[in-house]
């Protein structure tokens, strides 16, 4: 192949190298969080980590794979429930919290065979129905006693300070691992295939993309990720009431964070999670008006900034901090 001009496929640039380096530095600084944050802030930041996981998972599912689900609370609730069950069976409580997402992820594999047959709105509502079914089934468990609920009693064996620090570190580790996994996946060949499916499923199949298997990969990842968030939330709240965990509000939060940050951008949902976290911290105590405000701002965003904050910025300035795409760089013709 004779090249008229050298063409380089560029993935990293100075900006993205700087961004990823600062991100790593930030994560290292956060790793020492419990030593300087104080008990209240440590708890709050743990919650932020959970939000980042939720936003990143919903974005991977809807923004990249085009699978809009209104039922991700199913996996969130099942993650918490699995941890309760495992701990009750005598497994070490932290091991139970870690195993729960893996079990839910495995269970979502056969579910995907049914769920992924549904298209568009059918899938969205079908997942909601599944979440309600999961909620009702968990209510039937004698251990949970319906909406009376139960709690992760084994955690009370640990001193509150130890528990707080452990929760923080586990949440930080899981967030880093899950968001890192999404990053690696999106950068891989599979990541490009996932986006091709989102944009046009039939065309993707016609260029050799194994549509079902690829969708299933993301479906299972998002299920396990939401279950991890549920299991982490249980470790912070300790109490388990099914209606809290299986509430559709969790998916509403995910949608809010993703839409505000920028659906289908890697950076957007993380920014959306931080924004949601700040709003909740400031206005969370105002009850109903807080929820009205959230709903109104989501509406305004979808009307006037449909690509979200980060999506609008990338459209306007072409900046990508996390390099998941490909740019062609054309040689200027001068010998180098």
């Amino acid at each position: 192949m004779t090249q008229a001009q050298p063409i380089v496929v560029q993935r990293w640039n100075v900006l993205s190298i700087a961004a990823v380096t600062s991100l790593v530095a930030l994560l290292v600084a956060l790793a020492f969080g419990p030593t300087y944050l104080g008990p209240n802030l440590t708890d709050r930041i743990t919650t932020l980590f959970i939000y980042v996981i939720l936003a990143a998972m919903w974005n991977a599912l809807a923004g990249y794979a085009g699978l809009v689900s209104v039922g991700q609370q199913a996996f969130f609730g099942l993650g918490a429930y699995a941890a309760i069950r495992l701990s009750n069976a005598g497994i070490n409580v932290y091991l139970a919290l870690a195993l729960a997402p893996l079990i839910v992820g495995a269970a979502s594999f056969p579910l995907s065979a049914l769920a992924l047959r549904l298209r568009g709105g059918e899938f969205a509502i079908g997942m909601w129905v599944f979440a309600e079914l999961a909620h009702l089934s968990v209510n039937l468990d004698g251990l949970v006693q319906g909406e009376t609920g139960t709690s992760l009693i084994a955690l009370s064996a640990f001193a509150p300070d130890v528990r707080r620090a452990c929760n923080y570190w586990i949440a930080l580790a899981l967030m880093t691992a899950l968001v890192g996994l999404v990053f690696v996946l999106l950068r891989s060949r599979t990541g490009a295939a996932i986006q091709a499916i989102r944009d046009n499923e039939e065309a993707a199949a016609s260029v050799g993309v194994r549509v079902f298997a690829t969708k299933r990969l993301i479906f299972v990842l998002a299920a396990a990720g939401c279950a991890a968030a549920g299991s982490l939330t249980l470790s912070t709240l300790i109490s388990f009431q099914p209606k809290t965990y299986f509430s559709v509000q969790w998916t509403a939060y995910m949608i809010f964070m993703t839409l505000v940050g920028g659906l289908g951008t890697f950076e957007g949902p993380i920014i959306g999670a931080v924004i949601f976290f700040v709003i909740e911290t400031i206005f969370g105590a105002s009850g109903v008006w807080y929820l009205v405000g959230l709903g109104a701002s989501a509406l305004l965003f979808s009307l006037f900034l449909p690509r979200g904050i980060w999506g609008t910025l990338t459209d306007r300035f072409g900046i990508h901090l996390m390099p998941v795409g490909y740019r062609l760089r054309f040689g200027s013709g001068e010998p180098r």
Binding site: V9, R189, A192, A193, Q195, A196, R198, D199, N200, E202, A203, A204, V207, V209, G264, G325, Y326, R327, L328
Partner: peptide, 14 residues
């Protein structure tokens, strides 16, 4: 049926 939200190169790379 282009992959509308991807670049031309990314379309062909897939």
């Amino acid at each position: 049926r282009p992959f509308a939200n991807m670049t031309v190169f990314e379309n062909v790379f897939v």
